[in-house]
């Protein structure tokens, strides 16, 4: 854990790495919220925001999926805002951003051992994306026309924890190789 903390401190000191981490966090977070249905189309133009259901902030709709408390509309985009879903999306995105930045740093370093860990870091985000898609609206499966929603739904409770564990393991490996390459 100490190695990861040291790596994070080192990465955020570099403005380019910090920008990369923020970019990955936002892109992944947005993708996660889009796949779990919190962000979608259907807006009628203009913008509006209303937050009528703060009391539902901690109500679960499914595994790692929480009730929205408000609705934000910008143009055709509609965001049914859940603080906990957003926090989860940003946390996963942040970990993935760190893994990508650290992977890049290791790849640029003389030793090559971090290359596979960097790839694994990027792949680690996929289970969480599937978890988002599997929960309420199996959008991707409808598009693909696959009758496997039952299978995805049955494993969906495991997907977010799985993604978290993979990301932490990858970060730990990258932190170790980064500290050894810089020492």
């Amino acid at each position: 854990m100490k190695a990861i903390a040291m790596m994070v401190a080192m990465l955020v000191k570099d403005p380019r790495m910090l920008a990369l981490i923020v970019l990955v966090t936002l892109v992944y977070g947005g993708l996660y919220l889009w796949l779990n249905g919190d962000i979608s189309g259907g807006g009628t133009g203009g913008w509006q925001a209303a937050f009528p259901a703060w009391e539902r902030a901690f109500e679960a709709r499914g595994p790692f999926q929480f009730e929205p408390v408000g609705l934000i509309q910008v143009g055709t985009l509609v965001w049914t805002f859940s603080p906990l879903n957003t926090l989860l999306a940003l946390m996963m995105g942040g970990l993935l951003g760190l893994a990508v930045a650290a992977g890049l740093k290791v790849w640029k370093a003389p030793r090559q051992c971090g290359l596979s860990a960097s790839g694994a870091g990027t792949l680690a985000g996929i289970p969480a994306l599937l978890a988002g898609g599997a929960c309420c609206a199996p959008l991707v499966l409808i598009w693909l026309g696959l009758p496997i929603a039952g299978t995805v739904a049955s494993i969906s409770p495991l997907l977010v924890p799985l993604a978290l564990v993979i990301l932490l393991v990858v970060l730990w490996r990258l932190a170790k190789s980064l500290t050894s390459s810089t020492s």
Binding site: G41, G42, R56, F81, A137
Partner: peptide, 9 residues
């Protein structure tokens, strides 16, 4: 409840 009632998932 808050839902995007303009869109059918």
């Amino acid at each position: 409840y808050v839902r995007n009632y303009q869109r059918d998932p």
